[in-house]
Design a protein around this nucleic acid. Structure first.
Lengths: 163, 163
DNA sequence: GAACGAGATGTTATAATGTTTCAAATCTTG
DNA sequence: CAAGATTTGAAACATTATAACATCTCGTTC
């Protein structure tokens, strides 16, 4: 199984978080984008797991932090993080997940487990190429691509089979 | 250009609507699903153009009809239509569009013009296969697939180039 | 170091999208 | 026609997202 499949397996997750934050600092520094405390905190929260969080989930945690934030605070942080390629919005869930390819310009896809809610982000050249061909065939100029596959991850499939 | 590319070109749209409604009746009859007046009206409204409509857009038109509907009325109609493969929800737009492959079991993708807002629905075996391969490689069991490509359609690209 | 300006954040209000719940009406089937 | 199932009506509410404007922070310039 590829290293990318981690979210579906137990792993040293604090390493994920640490690496993500570290990469984020690098990316922001190189772009002269300011990774302020709020933005960094939101990114850290999103990376707490591989389950996408909603904006209001984030707000709730910030409230526990003692930070009395309003929705725009979170949405602005999320906008910043998206613009700098640090998080993705999962349209079918209205939720946000950490980008595992920070800084890379990429078309990615998501495998979303409906049972455990974990999300695996992948880049799939074959899919990207096929989609690009389809667009070209229709003379369509693609700009933003959303590919989200909902289903069951291997672990949850197994549990499901035992029912 | 394929016949499927119609939304981006002038065409006899009332034929689209007529055919869609006719197919819907056939599909529902064969499934013993009841295409009630509200459901049919919602489907007809969705087919008024190839631009996806939001649930509240539909509500507004129903209000003009003199039909004083509340949100659940529309969402229930939309649920029914989706379940019977007559409309699709475009997750990235929170909007609904008529299915051009009614009754067929298919994985489709959408080319969404950000300028004119028209949407072209396609089935792309190469994309479907590539996605299926990716899922298999991760031992993931896919159930629902969302593929939405936002960009510029040929007509709008042309206008854009002239700026 | 004071004044300025740009970017970031705070605050309030509101918009847009979607769901829950229960009651009433309608259709279907025996 | 009576009973049960499906559909619709209606009110309230939940969730997600944005608009508008005030304030703060921090680096730059004078």
């Amino acid at each position: 199984m590829s290293a990318n499949a981690l979210p579906y397996r137990p792993h040293n997750h604090s390493a994920c978080v640490h690496q993500a934050l570290s990469e984020a600092r690098t990316v922001c520094a190189s772009r002269q984008a300011r990774l302020t405390p709020i933005r960094e905190r939101v990114l850290e929260l999103i990376w707490q797991s591989h389950k996408p969080l909603g904006a209001y989930d984030l707000l709730a945690v910030l409230a526990e932090d003692g930070h009395n934030a309003a929705p725009p605070t979170v949405y602005r942080a999320l906008d910043f993080l998206q613009q700098n390629g640090l998080v993705h919005r999962i349209a079918s869930l209205n939720a946000f997940t950490g980008c595992t390819h920070a800084g890379e310009n990429h078309t990615c896809l998501f495998l979303i487990c409906r049972a455990c809610r974990n999300v695996l982000e992948l880049t799939a050249p074959d899919v990207t190429r096929a989609l690009s061909d389809v667009s070209a065939a229709e003379a369509f100029t693609p700009e933003e691509t959303t590919i989200e596959v909902a289903g069951l991850c291997p672990s949850c499939k197994e549990s499901d089979d035992h029912d």
